[in-house]
């Protein structure tokens, strides 16, 4: 079945593929960090009793979660340059480059998903904990920062990481705006050398090995954390 396959093409393009992987990993890590940060803010807003806070947050989350990631990427590629021109007041302002546009799109998209995970995590902390914190005289900020969020995040670590693995797979969709992430690099070599079979199967194998290993590590963590309580 593999006669006529040219595995050499993979070896020749390894440095190029590696550059793509660096892009993929960078985009994953940064948008995960940004997504968790924004997602936490959104979650706190959604849990707030103030309508001015929880309505916009709820609307944003539901809107983003109803829209395909590819359409979200298109949206931000369209909106980010306009926003920059508006903010800087300079009609000829330079763009911020494709990487940062992608980063903003993924961060904003993931924030909606992380928000729901974090909201559930915060709600899983017993109410008595908050009441105990208030009874000790802590204010809202301190009760959240010192009591609720540390416990919530401890419970959520496995789910947050699992979402990170999904994000890692999703970054391959920057293909639609022509960026050279790992999949983009594999695709470009495939087209240039006419070696679609080898390159796409190789890409699948690499993604599989990385995601499979990562999800098993997460599963281990999950077992350890659930034993700790």
């Amino acid at each position: 079945m593999f006669t006529g396959f040219d595995f050499d093409v993979i070896q020749r393009s390894l440095p190029y593929l590696w550059q793509g992987m660096v892009f993929t990993l960078g985009l994953t890590m940064l948008s995960m960090a940004g997504g968790i940060f924004l997602g936490t803010l959104l979650a706190l807003m959604r849990l707030s009793s103030s309508r001015i806070l929880n309505l916009p947050a709820g609307g944003y989350v539901n809107l983003l979660r109803s829209t395909p990631l590819i359409l979200v990427i298109f949206w931000f590629y369209f909106l980010v340059p306009i926003a920059i021109k508006k903010i800087s007041g300079d009609a000829y302002a330079q763009g911020i480059g494709p990487f940062y546009s992608a980063l903003i799109a993924f961060t904003m998209f993931e924030a909606a998903y992380y928000c729901e995970i974090i909201r559930a995590g915060i709600q899983s902390v017993p109410r008595g904990q908050v009441q105990a914190a208030y009874a000790l005289g802590l204010n809202y900020r301190l009760a959240m920062m010192k009591v609720v969020l540390p416990q919530a995040f401890r419970n959520m670590i496995p789910i947050l990481l699992t979402q990170g693995i999904i994000l890692f797979q999703d970054t391959s969709l920057v293909y639609v705006v022509g960026l050279t992430d790992f999949m983009g690099a594999a695709g470009k070599v495939a087209q240039r050398d006419g070696r679609l079979v080898e390159m796409y199967l190789f890409a699948a194998l690499v993604y599989f090995l990385l995601c499979f290993t990562a999800s098993h590590i997460v599963k281990r963590l999950q077992v350890r954390y659930s034993v700790g309580r």
């Binding site: 797979q169 079979v197 796409y200 699948a204």
Partner: peptide
């Protein structure tokens, strides 16, 4: 389940469309 869950959908799409007819 492990195979189909751990390969990005985009890659699977290319495999069904570009690779499958070749192999």
């Amino acid at each position: 389940v492990e195979i189909f869950r751990n390969v990005p959908l985009l890659v699977q799409m290319f495999i069904w469309y570009f690779v499958l007819p070749e192999i």
